[in-house]
């Protein structure tokens, strides 16, 4: 009897682990927008990847910089060649954690704070940003909007085009996990 109990206890431990804690999203949408007197710049990609651990609150996303699509193709080329230098730094990556103490196993909408490090253009920077997580049928979806200062990631804008490019861009991330 004792043996059987032990066995069940063991099994239970294992099963609780298989009860899903980690959710991923392979078509995470990332977009950014900046407005200047000269022209608006916006680009979008849905080729980002993201994961969330609802137990530990760990969040992660990564995107290949050259998957961003612009309305003007020349802008896209400049973005890759001159600003983000995607040949040297192919990915932007965020590793962080939800700081609030909430149970993401339960359905609902949660306003949370995420803290972590964004590596972009080869430069790490600590961010602390608000995000919304909606859990529906046990599956989380996340959305966040935050500002990136180009100078923080050593992205230089030449003085000639300083009017065309804003120093701060607004980044939006949307992920539906499963």
């Amino acid at each position: 009897m004792k043996r059987i109990t032990t066995l069940f206890a063991g099994l239970f431990l294992t099963l609780s682990c298989f009860a899903q804690d980690i959710y991923s999203c392979k078509n995470t949408t990332l977009s950014f927008f900046s407005a200047t007197p000269m022209e608006d710049i916006d680009a979008i990609t849905s080729k980002g990847v993201s994961a969330i651990n609802v137990k530990t609150g760990a969040v992660y996303f990564k995107v290949a910089v050259n998957t961003f699509k612009f309305k003007k193709s020349l802008m896209e080329e400049h973005f890759n060649e001159n600003y983000l230098e995607s040949d040297k730094y192919p990915n932007a990556e965020f590793k962080g954690k939800i700081t609030d103490n909430i149970d993401l196993h339960k359905d609902g909408t949660y306003n949370v704070t995420v803290e972590g490090t964004l590596n972009m253009h080869g430069v790490d920077k600590l961010y602390r940003e608000k995000a919304t997580i909606t859990v529906l049928g046990g599956k989380p979806a996340a959305e966040t909007k935050f500002n990136v200062h180009l100078a923080d990631h050593k992205i230089k804008i030449p003085t000639l085009v300083v009017k065309n490019i804003a120093e701060t861009v607004e980044v939006t991330v949307k992920a539906n996990y499963n």
Partner: peptide, 23 residues
């Protein structure tokens, strides 16, 4: 079985999940 469980909890570095998917 316990080993299995521990293994699972150890997987907190989510970056390993995707490998080189986005490349």
């Amino acid at each position: 079985l316990l080993g299995c469980s521990l293994d699972c909890y150890a997987q907190d570095d989510l970056s390993k999940m995707f490998g080189n998917d986005s490349v």
